[in-house]
Simulated scan of single mutants.
Amino acid sequence: MTLGLGFDSHFTASWLRQSLDLGLVIALTFLVLLAVRDRRTLWMVRGLIVLIVAAALGQQLQFQLLSFVLDKLVVGAALAMSVVFQSEFRRFLEQLGRGHLLPSFRQTRRTSETTDRSLDRIVEAVKELSQQRIGALMILETNEMMDERDFAVPGVKLDAELSKELIQTIFQTTTLLHDGAVFIRGDRVVSAGVILPLSDRTASRQLGTRHRAAMGITERTNNCVCIVVSEETGSISLAEAGMLDRPLTSSKLKELLETRFAPISERESVAPSLFSFGRKFSLRVIKLCRRLLQLPENK
């Protein structure tokens, strides 16, 4: 009888230790995802978590060949993600080293909303630039504040009130800032002459530099959309999540922008969904532990 109780306690302790080990790995994975704040990584991280859980189960069940293959897949997937998202992980490590990790998990909302009047001014400027066939590239911040370190070159700070005339003036070919992008946050023009990373997609190489830059920055972060006016044809494009919607009329552009800049409460964000998933997972683990340890459940 004593031997049986000893075996049960040893098994329970071993199971709890392994569960804690697995839970810490999953928690660390979630922390990395929340720190980089990039929707593109969401499904990749979920896939990595599935591989980690499968590898742990394979070891637990002593499936040696399956466990070996899954272990190699986990390592390969982690290395692939570190290469593909090297800038995001570099930022995560910088925040960790500076002790600024916890503030990065808080949802940072825009300091100013993009109003309908601001959208009207942008669309009017784009319409006239398109008619005059003057090339333009505009970055519009969306639901969260962008990290300007995502830009290749931050550009020249302006912090000016948004107006149709200002946008048109910046993109005149006689100005020094016309080759870069204009960064717009709410009803303010934050900076001009911004240089953006170019997309490496094969399809993007058939497009001009402005279109590749718009695709590049929206591939890198989901906190913005980009408006492009072609210098050659005057056609209007809207880039989001690395994809171009083109050609657009000014009325269609306004419709898309109004939809994109709908109240934040109407759109689902990544972090709350992850917190919800994590909370459900943790509650199930706690409930299972209570049953194993025969502890009373809270009512």
Rank of each mutant, 00 (worst) to 15 (best):
M1H: 05
M1S: 10
T2P: 01
G4I: 02
L5D: 05
H10E: 10
R17W: 14
L24T: 14
I26S: 15
F30W: 12
L31T: 13
D38I: 00
L42W: 12
V45P: 01
R46M: 00
R46D: 04
V53T: 11
A54P: 01
A56V: 02
G58A: 12
Q60V: 13
F63M: 12
F68W: 10
D71K: 09
L73D: 12
V83H: 13
Q86E: 03
Q86L: 15
F89R: 01
F89C: 01
R91V: 00
F92K: 03
F92Y: 10
R109S: 02
R110M: 09
S118T: 05
E124R: 12
A125Q: 02
S130Y: 06
R133Q: 15
G135S: 15
M138C: 13
I139D: 07
M146E: 11
K157S: 00
D159I: 00
A160L: 01
E161C: 00
E161L: 05
L166Y: 00
T174W: 10
T175V: 01
L176H: 12
G180F: 05
A181D: 05
F183Y: 15
I184L: 08
D187V: 03
R205C: 00
T209R: 06
A213H: 06
A214E: 03
T221D: 04
T221C: 07
V225C: 14
C226E: 06
V229R: 02
E231H: 06
A239Q: 04
R246F: 08
L248E: 06
T249D: 03
L253I: 12
T259R: 11
R260H: 09
F261Y: 09
A262M: 08
S265W: 09
S269I: 06
P272L: 08
L283V: 14
V285D: 07
I286W: 12
L288V: 08
R290V: 08
R291V: 15
L292H: 10
P296I: 05
E297N: 12
